[in-house]
Each structure stands twice: as structure tokens, then as C-alpha cells.
Nucleic acid binder design. Structure first.
Lengths: 347, 347
DNA sequence: TTTAGCACTTAGAACCTTCGAGTGCTAAAA
DNA sequence: TTTTAGCACTCGAAGGTTCTAAGTGCTAAA
């Protein structure tokens, strides 16, 4: 446990360091402390804090930098718990969502952009979860010109579609029959279940209607996997360039590769509970992200489920401000979505 | 006009420089020339080439580097005109297109990726032009749950769609009426014409059926603009990180911004004719692209129109190889698309 | 016209010095 | 016992020197 003075010192070091990016020395620090102590005293305290693993030096005679644990302690104990949010930021959040959204996806995707503009970091948003969404049904729309659009609708109102061309050796009646078969057997089931059945049970039945159903079923398959995967929207991709001090193009390329591959990143976004979570540096346990911190939070859209928003910035980030923004933003986003649902769906 | 020996020297400098990235000096060069001349002679020739603006020095006692004009001359006069393409590359091109494509877009988008893997540069592909595509018609598909999908189909088989929710104060009959009105009046017209009419003539007529048609018409509008805009697919975005030696994150961010904005880039992709075009450094006349070269080419899918492929790499690129690849690739892509059309559309 | 030879230029690496900001420690002051 | 002043020490960053390697242009001979 730390003394009050040590708390103050650690806090001041973190604050100072996030502003200047330079290691903080005892003299400068003396001026930024609420109490009046000499630099020598601060030096003594810093030795202690370093022994506890909260501070590090870049070299033997440099100032101190917070370690991952130092940030951790700061975030856990020293943050303004009031979640103060700048009035200006608040205003921006309120006003940036225009109206005129036609889809949930638009709102959630837009919100990633707003959040990244606000923080100047890279952000992720997931729409309210639909893990247990059920299949309402597939539709087939003939578009003329040998083309057909297949549309999947879920009971949560999600829509996924794909256009494909009909091979010459296939006719519309066959297609209709297949669709009817699929809808009869699979409507009402959860999407993951649908996916299993579609691969296991359906093919043998479809053979009655057509000789080589693989291509066609592949299409349903791909629409379905699309709909079932929890894709996230990314905002401010390129902000990474600004704060990822690691300018090795290889690492950067790998990092960007990660943003586009769902699996790699979404493991980090799974929320344990409805708190705002902060994962710092090595805590993320991914070598590429050692200099980053990840702030995640859920947002709650009542009966429509819960979504996730996340901000990825440098470990050296203004935690207080960022957390404040995330906190205000999750509420506003929930409000926006409720508005949307209300406007279009209610009653 | 250059002497044969000067040709040889310029050629050797370009080749050497694209390999090593280092300015080329007279001594080293002597070993890479087909004829036997002393370094002093080469120095004399280099003075001449520099006076003609084909070579530059980084500083007064450094080796020479090709200028934009130097590359230009090289590309115009010194390239292996046989378009030799590596057997290995050829094999890759042949094999990378799997089959099992369901849409033109998939093929063309995939081809951007293949091309970038092959060259390790950034690539662009546009599908066969549909500038003069005409509207076949809009479809409306009610999806239940207050949602409707609007689909636009063109006479070239292009499809664009958008889902939207129906405001509570609107009903399906109204929608149907509007669609019928639009289709009656606009089907068969070129898309740009449709866009104009939709904004000018249609609103006043729609007022008969509903009081505030703006939202709805906005949707048609946005689908339409989407379909009418010639969007290109980008491959190997992140390869830029590798060869854009300019590591200023601001420039990089601007550059990437450009890739996502159609207008900025598509002006450079317009082909004058069916040759393979090479634009070098300052010839692109965009400050951000001064260190880049852009290779563009059309590909010809017979009666289905012509598309474009392009490669953006460093000025210091292996022109011979890249042009060879582009040349082979445009043919293969055309073949793939013909196969596709043939498989699905013919007769 | 070509080449050998030579004086000259320059960037970059290696090395040194200086400077400032920081430290840890000791001994005195509070 | 805790705090502070003072001091010797450390280190990186910035600047200066020197040296070298790779290059040049020019001159005079082949």
C-alpha cells in the first residue's frame, strides 16, 4: 500500500508523462505536487515506488516513467472517479450523430468514427449482440438477367444479402423448391444451429431437386457465416500511424492485418461485465500491443441487447479524459439506438 | 538523342539503382556494362546525361540517380520490349484465381489482391465500365419487421441494394405506388440521367402519395449514386508502408485518405487508349505521389466492356517486371471474366 | 576519343567533449 | 525520525573533429 504522498507523486508522474512524453525528474515534479516537499524527498519516495515496480527508468540517471503496473495502480486508485467529461467533448458527442440513419449498422459504424475523432485513437464498435439471433427466413429475389439475390433475415431485424448468377443448368423452380425446403426446416433456429444443419442435413435432401447443389448451398453458407460473425466496425484506423511510435513497417503491417481479421482482435473485446475495462500494455498479452492500452465498455440498449465499444491508444494516454469520453459515449450511443428502434419498430 | 553507349549506361544505372537503392558510381557501373570502357569514360558520359536532365546527383560527389526524365527515357526506349514475364509469375497468375465466384465484383476485387501480392505494391482494379449503364428498375422487398430492401438493377447486370426501416407513418401501398411511379418514368434511362430526374422531376409527383417523401427519395438517391460511381477496388493497401520511404505519419495519413476517396484517385486512372501507361513521379502531378510511379492498363472483355487495372509503386521499381506482370494479368483477368459471363449468361 | 592519374568533395562512421538533467548518498537541519 | 541541502556521479543528446570510402571533375598522355 502506498502513502498519500506516494499516491500524489505517482499521480503527478503519470499526468506529466502523458502530457510531455518525457521521463519525469524530481525537480520538475516538485512544482507539480499539491504539497510542498523538496526534490530530495521526492527522490527518496521514487526509489521506493521503483522498488515496488510502479516506476521505471530509461537509464540510470534519467527521470522516471510509469510501468504497466504504475498505470494500473493509477487507473485503479488515482483516477478522478467523478468521470468528469469536458463540456466541449460532451457537446460534440451530442451533436455528431446526425439523424437520417436507415440502418443499425450505419449508426454503429458512424459511432466508431465519432469516437475516434474525439479521442484521436483507433476505435471499435460492435452492434448489440445477436449471438442468439434466430433465422426468420431466406428470401430469393429474381433480378432478371440470370441473377438472383438471396436475402437472410433474422428475428432481430438483421439483414444480410448476396447476389449471384444462376448457372445455365439451373432453373427458378428448382431454386424455389430449395428455398422452401430450407425455410421450412430451419426458420426459427439460432443462426449457429442453422449453419450446422445447412452443412449436415440439408445437402442430402436437396439432391432430390438438383444434381449439384454445392454451389448454391455455398452461397447460403457464406451469407449465413457473414450474418453470424460478430463483425466490428473500426474507426480511425490511420490514427495508429500517429501514436504507434514503433515505426517498423513490418510491425505496422502486422498490426493492420490484425484489425481486419476478426478472430485476432475480438477475443480482446469480450466484456466480463458492464464496467468500463482498461487493459494496459503487457496486460493485453499480445506482443504487438505492448505499447497500447485498450479501453472497452458495453452499452445497453434495453431489450435490444448489449453492444461493445472500445478504444485502442498508446499506454501513455490521458486515461481520465478517454474513460470519461467512453463513459459518456456509451450512453449516447444507447440513446441513439433506442431512438432508432423507437422511431421504426415500436408497436 | 543518345548514343548507343549512353543508352547502355542509362539502362545500367536504372537497373542497378532499382536493385540496390544506392546512387550508382562510375566504377561499379563499369563492371555492369556490356562494353568495355573505363570509369573515366563513363564519367564523361554521365556529365552529358546529367546535362540532358536524365540523371541527378544527391550531392556533388555522389553517384548518379535517374531523374523522372531518366526513368521516362528508360521506360520509353530501353525496356525489353518483348514483355518477358517470369514463368513463375505466370504460373501464379494462372492459378490464383480460384473458381467459385458468384459475382463480377468478387473477381475484380480478388484480382486487386492477387496483383498486389504479385508485385508487392498497391493496386487498383475497376470492373468493366458501366458509365452508360441504364436503369432496369428498382425492386422493393418487404422483409417483415418494418424493414424493406430496395434493390437497383441495371441493364448491365449490376446490382445495388440498401435496407431501410419504414417510418411508422408510412405504409406499404404508398411505397409500392412510389416505386411504380419511379420505374415507369425512369427505367431505360442512363443512370446519370436517372439521378437528375430523381432530384428534379420526381419529388413533385410523389407528393401525391405521401406528405414527406424526402427520406424515402434520399434512399433511392443514395443507392443510385453508389451504383453510378465508378468505385475501384484497392489491393495491398498496407504495402505502401513498405515502400513509401516518406515516414512522416501525416503524409501517410493523407495518402491513405486519398485511397478511400474516389475522386482524388480516379482521375489518374482514366485511360487514354489501350496501351499500358506508365506515369512516373512528378508526371502524376500530385505532390504526395512524387516518389511513386503509376502503371495503368485497360483490359478488354469483348462485348462486356473494358475495365482498368493499375499498380502504384515507388519510382524506383522494377519496371520491366511490373509491366510484364500487368500485361499478362490484364489478359488473364479478361479471360476470367469471359469465363464467368460465359458460364452464367450466354444464350 | 579514351584512359590514367590526381586533387577535390561529401556523407557517414567513429570518437571526443560539453552540457543539462537527472540520480543516489551523506550529513546536517527540523 | 523525517526532511533537506549539497555534492559527486551518470547518462543521453548535441555538437565538433577526424578519418575513410566512394565518388567526382579535370588534365594530360596514350
Amino acid at each position: 500500500m502506498l502513502t498519500q504522498r506516494q499516491d500524489a507523486i505517482l499521480q503527478a508522474i503519470v499526468r506529466q508523462y502523458t502530457v510531455t512524453g518525457q521521463p519525469v525528474g524530481s525537480k520538475v515534479l516538485a512544482q507539480h505536487l499539491p504539497m510542498k516537499v523538496s526534490s530530495a524527498t521526492i527522490r527518496n519516495e521514487m526509489v521506493d515506488l521503483e522498488e515496488q515496480g510502479l516506476l521505471v527508468k530509461e537509464h540510470s540517471s534519467s527521470g522516471r516513467i510509469p510501468s504497466t503496473q504504475g498505470y494500473r495502480y493509477y487507473v485503479d486508485h488515482l483516477l478522478d472517479q467523478k468521470m468528469v467529461i469536458d463540456n466541449n467533448d460532451m457537446a460534440i458527442i451530442r451533436n455528431s450523430f446526425g439523424s437520417n440513419f436507415h440502418k443499425i449498422d450505419e449508426i454503429v459504424s458512424r459511432s466508431a468514427d465519432i469516437l475516434s475523432d474525439l479521442t484521436s485513437f483507433t476505435t471499435f464498435t460492435l452492434k448489440p449482440e445477436q449471438k442468439h439471433a434466430r433465422l426468420s427466413g431466406f428470401r430469393l429475389v429474381p433480378l432478371g438477367n440470370h441473377q438472383v439475390m438471396a436475402i437472410l433475415v433474422t428475428d432481430t431485424g438483421d439483414v444480410e444479402n448476396q447476389t449471384f448468377a444462376i448457372p445455365r443448368d439451373m432453373n427458378t423452380e428448382e431454386l424455389e423448391a430449395v428455398i422452401r425446403l430450407i425455410n421450412d426446416q430451419l426458420a426459427g433456429l439460432p443462426l449457429d444451429e442453422v449453419l450446422v444443419r445447412l452443412q449436415r442435413d440439408i445437402p442430402m435432401q436437396v439432391v432430390q431437386y438438383m444434381h449439384s447443389p454445392d454451389g448454391l448451398l455455398g452461397i447460403f453458407d457464406s451469407i449465413l457465416s457473414h450474418a453470424a460473425s460478430e463483425r466490428f466496425f473500426v474507426g480511425g484506423r490511420m490514427n495508429l500511424l500517429g501514436f504507434s511510435h514503433n515505426h517498423d513497417p513490418n510491425d505496422l503491417q502486422e498490426l493492420y492485418g490484425m484489425l481486419d481479421k476478426n478472430e485476432n482482435l475480438s477475443q480482446f473485446l469480450d466484456p466480463e461485465d458492464d464496467d468500463i475495462h482498461v487493459r494496459i500494455g503487457s496486460e493485453i498479452s499480445n506482443k504487438l500491443l505492448d505499447d497500447f492500452s485498450l479501453i472497452t465498455a458495453t452499452y445497453d440498449v434495453d431489450q435490444y441487447g448489449k453492444g461493445i465499444i472500445a478504444v485502442l491508444g498508446p499506454t501513455r494516454m490521458p486515461y481520465s479524459r478517454t474513460i470519461g469520453i467512453v463513459s459518456a459515449f456509451r450512453q449516447e450511443l444507447a440513446r441513439q439506438l433506442l431512438d432508432y428502434y423507437h422511431h421504426y419498430y415500436d408497436q
